[in-house]
Design a binder for these strands. Structure first.
Length: 521
RNA sequence: GGGGGCAUAACUCAGUUGGUAGAGUAGUUGGCUUUUAACCAAUUUGUCCCAGGUUCAAGUCCUGGUGCCCUCACCA
């Protein structure tokens, strides 16, 4: 369907072919170097012949001379093509080039009259290939000064957002650097990176509504994982003592500035440690991530600015016991039920059902309403009510409390950790209570008996933690919305686009995938 | 799911009281050998988100729908 593409560009494409030039060659001239390295090394490299390659984002033409802004992953560099310095065949290509095309230029690295470092395309006489078009673009790039500004278009066409805005590109490269720094810390502590199933026959490890899917040839219902937790702890049973997984998890809930249906969390488990060890490691990870994000200042302070509030991420972070924070900000003792009932009435908090779980859930609602806003962070809140922690080990001193912490930063819960419950009978009892609880729509639908059996074989005492990566990166990069830290946030299908190619019928394509035995044309 | 806002050219945006659809960028043509948002001259491009309604006349007013953003609820 030709009218999907721009007629102007198709004409240029035809012109190129008329010149006998391939618009999509397979190979780039060898020895291509990146813009940023050439500029960083400019004094030493000046006068040398170099080759650059990238996308043309600017052109200033003078008839017998043209300046091009060429961008690659590292940044921008200027090129200059002159009629009396290039072969006529190469110079003629300028006529067929548009903004957005990929090109390569070979020539002298030098400066212009105003001192701007520039690659001057070289190659007199019959030499060809010192200016080449590497890829002809058939779609117009966005406005050169503003780029894409509509947030929907930016997300839908992230590829355009990325090449038209270096800040955006840098931010996603910073995300990559943050993940790498965190992995380095894990490896430095003797951790192993593992991958566990995404398709779960029973969903668990968190309270959330799952996505449901179906395996055709097994004819069974499966869930996209809401957490990797129960599989990772099976590995502790198996004798792998330190594991982490950067896990994409899926939760079938509403979308918001802080929620995407799929998101990334890192979970990590360490045998012979406990939640106190996880506090230390989590702090190290957050600090390492902040350093990788470039937030360390010359004076050694580490600061992040998120939603116009500055957070000091210089360790150590504050630690506060749940019960202490509760008493301070709610004004009553978390174990004083009569006083709590009055507080709940005052703040319209309702107990959702019978039993300890629902009571403590309501207490925790009070905590979330009255205490969490007072904890901008970074802060570790430790020792949570055991009744709302089905996977955490109760405190030996007072089983009302569990060995659990949550880490808050930027007004969000960024991490959740326990001393992992490894008593198989207690775990089974807690699972059964969850499944029996019909008041909670997010409770697991059945007990994962294989996990209980794994515990029955014996799991060493361990600490485990999960960190919400996307939210951490929001704070570190100062992004208000999770959509700005996800390369491709979830979007509804673009209306009209599927029809644009004209020929294909999405219905028949889908049925072909699902019924491979159907005749193939 | 509730409430509020936005939708005009490939991109960024104007569009008056309801009266022939606009600018800049990009593209095209011509000029120009040191520009860098180059400049000068000419020029092409529209399902004004969709469907109804009011009106002599709707980009503009009304109703419904779609998409996105903000906010609340749920959640990490």
């Amino acid at each position: 369907m030709t009218d999907f593409f721009h007629p102007d560009r198709l004409q240029k494409l035809a012109d190129l072919k008329g010149l006998g030039v391939l618009p999509y060659p397979a190979r780039c001239p060898e020895g291509r170097e990146r813009a940023a390295e050439l500029l960083a090394d400019f004094d030493a490299r000046k006068g040398q012949t170099v080759t650059i390659a990238g996308r043309v984002m600017g052109r200033r033409g003078y008839g017998k001379l043209a300046f091009l802004d060429v961008i690659d992953e590292s940044g921008r560099i200027q090129a200059c093509l002159q009629k009396d310095r290039l072969s006529s065949a190469d110079f003629a290509l300028l006529k067929c080039m548009n903004l957005g095309d990929f090109v390569s230029i070979t020539g002298e690295l030098s400066t212009t009259k105003v001192g701007d470092p520039t690659v001057f395309g070289d190659g007199a006489g019959d030499s060809v290939g010192n200016f080449t078009i590497l890829c002809k673009a058939l779609e117009n790039p966005p406005e050169k000064w503003h780029g894409l500004s509509d947030s929907e278009l930016r997300a839908r066409r992230r590829y355009v957002d990325l090449f038209s805005n270096q800040e955006v590109r840098n931010d996603f490269l910073r995300r990559s650097a943050i993940l790498r720094a965190m992995k380095d810390i894990f490896f430095g502590h003797g951790y192993h990176e593992v991958e566990t199933p995404v398709l779960h026959p029973i969903y668990g490890g968190a309270n959330a509504r799952p996505f449901v899917t179906h395996h055709n040839s097994l004819d069974m219902q499966l869930y996209l994982r809401i957490a990797p937790e129960l599989y990772l702890k099976r590995l502790l049973v198996g004798g792998i003592e330190r594991v982490f997984e950067f896990a994409r998890v899926f939760r079938n809930e509403g979308l918001s500035q802080r929620h995407n249906p799929e998101f990334t969390m890192v979970e990590f488990y360490q045998a012979y440690s406990d939640y106190r060890g996880m506090v230390e490691l989590t702090e190290e990870l957050v600090v390492g991530a902040a350093r990788a994000a470039g937030l360390e200042q010359e004076n050694g302070k580490i600061c992040a600015t998120f939603r116009e509030v500055e957070y000091d991420l210089s360790p150590p972070f504050q630690r506060v016991r749940y019960a202490d924070a509760f008493r301070e900000h709610v004004g009553v003792d978390a174990e004083d039920r009569p006083a709590l009932e009055a507080k709940m009435a005052e703040h319209h908090v309702k107990v959702g059902g019978n039993g300890e779980y629902h009571w403590w859930k309501a207490v925790n609602d009070l905590f979330e309403e009255l205490v969490e806003p007072e904890l901008p962070g970074p802060v570790f809140v430790t020792d949570y009510p055991a009744a709302i922690c089905p996977l955490a080990k109760p405190s030996a001193d007072n089983p009302v409390w569990a060995e659990r912490f949550e880490f808050f930063l930027g007004g969000m819960e960024l991490a959740n950790a326990f001393s992992e419950l490894n008593d198989p009978q207690l775990q089974l009892q807690k699972f059964e209570e969850q499944v029996a609880d019909l008041d909670d729509p997010e409770a697991p639908n059945q007990v994962d008996m294989d996990y209980v059996r794994a515990l029955a074989y014996g799991m060493p005492p361990a600490g485990g933690c999960g960190i919400g990566i996307d939210r951490l990166i929001m704070v570190l990069l100062g992004k208000d919305s999770i959509r700005d830290v996800l390369l491709f946030p979830h979007m509804r299908p673009e209306v009209g686009l599927a029809d644009a190619s004209g020929g294909s019928d999405p219905e028949s394509k889908t049925s072909g995938v699902e019924t491979p035995e159907a005749p193939v044309q």
